[in-house]
Computed example of a mutant assay.
Amino acid sequence: MIRIASAQLWVHDQNEALEFWTKKVGLEVRSDVTMAEMGDFRWLTVGPPGQEDVSIVLMAVPGPPMIDAGTQDEIRNLTAKGFAGTVFLTTDDCQASYEELVSRGVEFTETPEQRPYGIDAGFRDPSGNSIRLTQLAPDLANA
């Protein structure tokens, strides 16, 4: 069986991303390893408490020699605009989760609204990645 273990978000600053995802969103650190033999490459992952088999890789945008400076700039620009990736988070109570995250300093781009699939809200991380917070409609949540 194939299973999803991790998804990746490009981040402009791993320390800032770590602070945001742990302190404001409430995820926990899964891995934080720096590999000197790979030019101090940092493998940084976070995930929701209680959902141990899934994590988000907070990947620094690499530069030369891995990718050229032009491509690096393109990735940074697309990330900042919210078009380099999206994370979809689900919750049992979108309004309560929204209020909790706002109290921790998360700035939402869209407040909770009723949609055909449930209640949905949106925010961005410090790098610009688009994050959706959704309370699925009962018929979808149990599917």
Rank of each mutant, 00 (worst) to 15 (best):
L9A: 11
L9E: 12
L9I: 08
H12M: 06
H12C: 03
D13E: 13
D13T: 08
Q14K: 03
Q14E: 12
N15L: 09
N15W: 12
A17L: 06
T22G: 09
T22W: 10
K23I: 02
K23Y: 02
K23E: 14
K24D: 02
V25Y: 03
V25R: 00
G26K: 04
L27D: 10
E28A: 02
E28D: 07
V29D: 00
R30A: 02
S31M: 12
D32R: 04
D32L: 04
V33K: 10
T34W: 00
T34P: 02
M35P: 09
M35K: 08
A36R: 04
A36Y: 08
E37S: 07
M38W: 09
M38R: 03
M38P: 01
G39Y: 03
D40S: 07
F41P: 00
W43R: 05
T45L: 06
T45M: 13
G47T: 09
G47I: 07
G47P: 10
P48D: 14
P48K: 13
P48L: 15
P48C: 15
P49G: 14
G50E: 15
Q51T: 14
E52G: 13
E52A: 14
E52F: 10
V54E: 15
S55N: 15
S55G: 13
S55Y: 14
S55H: 15
S55D: 15
S55P: 04
I56V: 15
I56D: 12
V57T: 14
V57F: 12
M59I: 07
A60K: 07
A60I: 03
V61D: 06
V61Y: 02
G63M: 05
G63N: 07
G63D: 14
G63W: 10
G63Y: 09
P64I: 07
P65D: 14
M66C: 08
M66Q: 12
I67A: 11
D68Q: 14
T71N: 00
Q72A: 11
R76N: 07
T79P: 09
A80E: 13
A80L: 08
A80I: 07
K81D: 06
G82R: 01
F83K: 02
A84P: 04
A84H: 01
G85K: 01
G85E: 02
T86F: 01
V87A: 10
F88Y: 14
F88P: 00
T90L: 05
T90G: 06
T91C: 13
T91P: 07
T91G: 11
T91D: 12
D92C: 11
D93M: 13
D93L: 07
D93N: 15
C94F: 15
C94M: 14
C94V: 13
Q95D: 14
Q95M: 10
S97I: 00
Y98M: 04
Y98V: 04
E99H: 11
E99F: 09
L101W: 13
V102D: 11
R104Q: 11
R104M: 01
G105K: 05
V106E: 11
F108T: 00
E110D: 06
E110L: 01
T111E: 04
P112E: 05
E113C: 06
E113P: 01
E113L: 06
Q114G: 09
R115V: 07
R115K: 06
R115A: 02
P116G: 06
Y117E: 05
G118I: 03
I119A: 03
A121P: 04
A121V: 05
G122Q: 10
N129D: 03
S130N: 10
R132F: 08
L133A: 01
T134P: 03
Q135G: 05
Q135D: 00
